[in-house]
């Protein structure tokens, strides 16, 4: 057995906000008919969360269900449970037009925390952060690459990107968070 390791093994940077690679995170892509009752039930069983509406993210006891597109969800579960959860989803949705894939090792997760965490992301993403409430996930770009982000706590933004660009995204966030580069110094 090989030892699982996250993209940047928990790398950190400290500036006017703190940037951390969040380590191993189970992530499952679920595609299918979001109007299907069987799919909603399978999501509930896998995460404990009700099916999120457009752009919604529901969180419960360390798990989450996030709306990615009209036919796609991203489910967050502990890393060690992802394989079994994906298999359980596949079994629960047998006969449905649906696909569950464990993409944990294909993604990277970052947390940006601090009172000015917004400003770190604001410099990189064409998103109106003043109108991004908690409970909403926003797919967008971070500079040149695709990303999805949400408010995971009052002063914290979580950001998911592809693992292959994790180094690039970490550098973006770390440079954007450099002390002295605040957008509106207090």
């Amino acid at each position: 057995m090989s030892e699982p390791i996250s993209a940047l093994a928990g790398k950190n940077a400290e500036g006017f906000a703190r940037v951390s690679e969040a380590g191993l995170q189970g992530m499952i892509t679920l595609r299918g008919n979001l109007a299907s009752a069987a799919l909603a039930a399978a999501v509930k069983a896998a995460t404990g969360c009700a099916l999120p509406g457009n752009r919604g993210i529901h969180t419960k006891a360390g798990k989450a269900a996030a709306w990615m597109s009209p036919d796609e969800l991203l489910l967050l579960v502990p890393y060690g449970e992802a394989e079994a959860t994906a298999a359980a989803l596949e079994a629960a949705l047998a006969g449905e037009h649906a696909l569950a894939a464990n993409v944990s090792d294909a993604r990277a997760l970052f947390r940006v925390s601090g009172a000015k965490a917004d400003q770190v992301a604001m410099k990189l993403c064409p998103v109106d952060f003043a109108r991004l409430p908690q409970g909403e996930i926003r797919r967008t770009r971070a500079a040149q690459v695709a990303a999805a982000l949400w408010r995971s706590a009052p002063d914290e933004i979580s950001l998911v990107c592809f693992r292959s660009v994790a180094g690039y995204v970490f550098d973006l966030l770390a440079i954007s968070a450099r002390t002295g580069s605040e957008l509106a110094p207090a």
């Binding site: 457009n54 752009r55 597109s69 009209p70 064409p126 109106d128 926003r138 797919r139 967008t140 770009r141």
Partner: peptide, 11 residues
């Protein structure tokens, strides 16, 4: 119209 986001050109 699919997700409701007011997306600017670069997205």
């Amino acid at each position: 119209p699919c997700c409701g986001v007011a997306a600017e050109e670069t997205e």
